[in-house]
Design a protein around this nucleic acid. Structure first.
Length: 900
RNA sequence: GCCCGGAUGGUGAAAUCGGUAGACACAAGAGACUUAAAAUCUCUCGGCCUUUGGCUGUGCGGGUUCGAUUCCCGCUCCGGGCACCA
């Protein structure tokens, strides 16, 4: 045995052992419970970054722990290989996206292998391979036939200079990131998946996911956004609109209907377009609304603007005319593209009404005013209460409860009692909704219904590096799905990427085709699918990745669902929701038996790092990697200045953000692995923070992790060479006092480690292994046989707890220590509860809640004895200062608090 | 703007059901060993004070409780998501 720890040698030897033994290649096994442990597959961006190392180390710790506990563990890996960065790289470096992607995959696969993850590489898949995406195309045609995929217009970011569609990420301050051109919204036809058909199921099933973090379930619940409300129809005013019809809106606050003072429609709404025809100012306003990104975050941050169309609709209850406004905050994609505005009870409407001088009519006395509202004498019942914006009105029941409606207060949005609402006065909000819905239904002008915030999933992308949408457009037959026999529609790999327009739309050799239905010349669809589609079913494909005949087979039902899914919290909504939907869509196609793809979810906190950039002349940001930057700090450690190492000139300090390719703040783990080895990198990233917590990257502390592994090696070496020979032929049943204490400490650390493993708090598991070594190192050796017996047991525990985190060193020392051939088959260590028993325990003594001392009592001491001992304690006498004890709180096993 | 999180020493963090705040480490300082350095080992290490003791301290302001890092109310700052980054 080497007396020094040489990670490079032992790590390559262990990896060779696993490869030759095929330790991680698994098949279905009826004798062992299956455990499917999956980490989110990476986008092959070039190199692994710390977020990957963290993600895959966490997944590997769980996998190896279950493996050691006797489960048949499948841990696969693959590549989320389609996506925008490959096209950007193609533009920048003039290398075809396919070539760039495959080269990255090769490099990153080698990095993953170097880190020693227990992956079944026989199941590896890449989503950009035709034998993967052909099944996606096949399923597309099935779902299309079923009506679960359909076509409608969608809004995109259009760059008029590059004549291309941009992702939201590529629009910065309303301009194209490459061209700098002002971005326009443009409506184009797109394919949509009807995820809303599953909205109720996706929502209800969240209640049956105890293995998911509450936080994620809450985010998904809010995202789906089920709301019960009333659809209200406002009949067109014939005089101004010139045609019969109704304007439909949905509201959850039908109780405020009598306070509606205008309606607002989206800029793309038919009424807005109609009014703009003979109103140049309105047309100009609508054109202005067309500028800027389609991202909701941008829209929500915009100043609320609007314009009167001059059109009017009729209030369905009062019969009064309400003006129709165009407002930039109303989105055509949501509901009906129109809202009723009740400025008195909605903050956004309130601000809008104040800005444009629209009437504000209070119709709800806020809930907290309760019974005190005297509607008879209230100004609510006075017609003059319809005040213009800005004019203060005093409302309320009592002299002490006066509110001015000139400034928004959150209480205005609360439910309460109706006032100023004619026949509905005095009703509570909920009663009023019922009454108003009933009256509207009787008039045929509305009814109760459920609405979701969730929108259908637009999957068309006007990009090259994605899965081609298997459709053909024929002048005679319309949109025709590509028949099974002609699948896959293969994406051509030798293509020129310029950043202008869609490459496939410039390739007649791709789009020229014949109609599968009538045989006449036709045009192939040139849009590709959203890359979220590939990642919505890869976890099922892993089970049968080598099946060339079908998308899934019986093996998928053996392995699914994923028992433990590990991935970044940033995927809490989109990826996870799409996957839950897609699994159900596949279930309903008879492809899988499961509905819920991921039984347990661990959302890893992101690894974040500082960002640095320089602005070039045209205002574009060049992001600079932190590794190339020198920083100056003040005495509190805050970064005050940063310079580029290459030229010594200053760079701009950006925020601290998740490591990403686009912000160039990823830290490559390779240097760490090269210098210290994979085990140190793994131990460090596990030790430094609990998995769910965000981790601000810093490599200070890596030394300590490495030092610990060196100590483990040195101690095991001492065991193998000096201590082991002293082992007694017969192991003793009990150990002498001091060694029994060490043994108790050991087993209590093991117990703690098991508890922490159960809640995935791996950082304290790593701490526990350090505490175990500390305890073993200080165990007295004056009784050599007993000492050797303790160290043998202790080391066997320590190495097995360490094995999931640092598998290479554990593998090597398990063999060197003579414990066995393969620690993977050694089983998980068991806590000896008998070793934990103590005769005496120490209690903390508090006087009036303050720590004043401690007392040692028998473990089974009765409460009276503890109280008596506490009151007799010297610290108690001193701090009670002669006062009688008013109360004595005894927390068994913990403390005594004397209150006086 | 909306939804979801987070904040504890110089640093990463721990504290299982409301019960000793700072386990385990990093950094720093002092010492031992050494010709020297590295490595290793030992000790100190939240702040303040009148230092065998006491006061104070878990982002800020309130509250509940014998007792609050933990529960409640109101803020601040930081991070994630917002449907075309993945």
């Amino acid at each position: 045995m080497q007396d020094k720890y040489h990670p490079a040698t032992i790590e390559s030897a262990a990896q060779k052992f696993w490869a030759e033994a095929r330790s991680f290649e698994v098949t279905e096994d009826a004798d062992r419970p299956k455990y499917y442990c999956l980490s989110m597959f990476p986008y092959p961006s070039g190199k692994l970054h710390m977020g990957h190392v963290r993600n895959y180390t966490i997944g590997d710790v769980i996998s190896r722990m279950y493996r050691m506990r006797g489960y048949n563990v499948m841990q696969p890996m693959g590549w989320d290989a389609f996506g925008m960065p490959a096209e950007n790289a193609a533009i920048q470096h003039n290398v075809p996206p396919a070539q760039w992607t495959y080269a990255n995959i090769d490099y990153m696969r080698a990095q993953l292998k170097r880190l020693g993850f227990g992956i079944d590489w026989s199941r590896e898949l890449a989503t950009c391979a035709p034998d993967y995406y052909r099944w996606e195309q096949w399923l597309f045609t099935r779902l299309y036939a079923k009506g679960l995929i359909y076509k409608k217009a969608g809004t995109v970011n259009w760059d008029p200079v590059d004549e291309t569609v941009l992702a939201n990420e590529q629009v910065i301050d309303g301009r194209g990131w490459r061209s700098g051109a002002l971005i326009e919204k443009r409506e184009i036809p797109m394919y949509y998946m009807k995820i809303t058909a599953y909205a109720d199921e996706l929502l209800a099933a969240l209640d049956d996911l105890p293995g998911w973090p509450e936080q994620v379930k809450l985010m998904q619940k809010n995202w789906i956004g089920r709301s019960e409300g009333v659809e209200i129809h406002f009949p067109y005013d014939l005089e101004t609109i010139g045609a019969a019809g109704v304007l439909k809106v949905f509201t959850t606050r039908a109780d405020t209907l009598m306070g509606a003072t205008y309606v607002a429609v989206a800029a793309e709404h038919p009424l807005a377009l109609q009014a703009a025809q003979d109103n140049p100012a309105l047309a100009a306003f609508i054109a202005e609304c067309q500028h800027g990104s389609v991202a909701e975050a941008d829209l929500a941050a915009m100043e609320k603007k609007g314009m009167d169309t001059g059109l009017r609709v009729v209030h369905p209850i009062s019969g009064e005319f309400l003006p129709v406004w165009v407002a930039n905050y109303v989105l055509m994609g949501y509901g009906e593209g129109a809202v009723m505005a009740v400025p008195a009870h909605d903050e956004r409407d309130f601000a809008f009404a104040q800005g444009y001088g629209l009437p504000i009519v209070p119709v709800i006395a806020p809930g907290e005013w309760g019974q005190a509202v005297d509607t008879a004498s209230s100004v609510f019942n006075d017609a003059s209460a319809k005040l213009s914006a800005g004019a203060p009105i005093l409302v309320g029941a009592s002299a002490t409860e006066a509110l001015a409606w000139s400034h928004w207060q959150d209480v205005f949005a609360e439910h309460g009692k109706l006032v100023n609402s004619g026949k509905y006065d005095g009703l509570r909000s909920m009663e009023a909704v019922d009454a108003i819905a009933t009256d509207l239904a009787a008039k045929g002008l509305g009814e109760k219904r459920v609405q979701y915030r969730l929108r259908d999933w637009g999957i068309s992308r006007q990009r090259y590096w994605g899965c081609p949408i298997p459709m053909v457009h024929c002048d005679h037959c319309g949109d025709v799905p590509v028949p099974d026999a002609q699948l896959p529609v293969v994406l051509p790999e030798n293509v020129e990427i310029t950043g202008h327009g869609s490459p496939l739309a410039r390739m007649p050799e791709f789009y020229d085709c014949t109609c599968p239905a009538c045989g006449r010349p036709a045009r192939r669809e040139t849009d590709t699918m959203d890359t979220f589609v590939e990642s919505s079913w890869y976890f099922l494909r892993y089970a049968c990745a080598n099946n060339a005949e079908a998308m899934l087979d019986a093996r998928a039902n053996h392995w699914a669902p994923v028992d433990q899914y590990v991935g970044g919290i940033e995927h809490a909504i989109l990826h996870l929701l799409y996957s839950r939907f897609f699994t159900r869509a596949m279930r309903d196609e008879g492809l899988t038996e499961v509905s819920e793809p991921f039984t347990n979810l661990l959302t890893q906190g992101m690894v974040i790092a500082d960002t640095y950039y320089r602005e070039s002349g045209d205002g574009k940001k060049q992001w600079i990697n932190p590794a190339d930057v020198d920083v100056a700090r003040d005495d509190k450690g805050r970064v005050t200045a940063a310079t580029l190492r290459a030229d010594g000139q200053p760079v701009v300090i950006g925020g601290t953000e998740k490591m990403s390719k686009s912000k160039n703040n990823g830290v490559d783990p390779q240097a760490l692995v090269d210098q210290y080895g994979a085990d140190t990198a793994r131990f460090f990233i596990i030790f430094t923070s609990p998995p769910e917590q965000q981790l601000e990257w810093s490599d200070s502390g890596v030394e300590g992790a490495h030092r610990f592994l060196r100590r483990v090696w040195a101690f095991a070496h001492r065991f193998a060479t000096e201590i082991r020979p002293a082992l007694p032929a017969q192991r003793a049943a009990t150990l002498p006092g001091a060694l029994a204490d060490v043994r108790r400490e050991l087993h209590s650390h093991l117990k703690q480690a098991n508890y922490d493993l159960g809640k995935h708090q791996f950082n304290t598991v790593a701490s526990a292994t350090m505490k175990m070594l500390n305890a073993l190192e200080k165990a007295p050796a004056d009784a050599p046989a007993a000492h050797a017996q303790l160290v043998e047991e202790g080391l066997a525990i320590l190495l097995r707890v360490l094995a999931p985190i640092t598998p290479h060193i554990a593998h090597a020392l398990w063999r060197e220590g003579g414990f066995g051939d393969d620690i993977l088959d050694a089983g998980w260590p068991e806590v000896d509860e008998a070793a934990l028993v103590q005769d005496e325990i120490e209690l903390v003594l508090q006087i009036n809640g303050k720590l004043r001392g401690s007392l040692t009592v028998a473990a089974d001491a009765p409460r009276e004895a503890i109280e008596k001992a506490a009151l007799a304690h010297e610290a108690a006498v001193k701090f009670m200062d002669g006062k009688p004890a008013r109360k004595v709180v005894v927390v068994p096993g913990r403390l005594v608090n004397v209150v006086c």
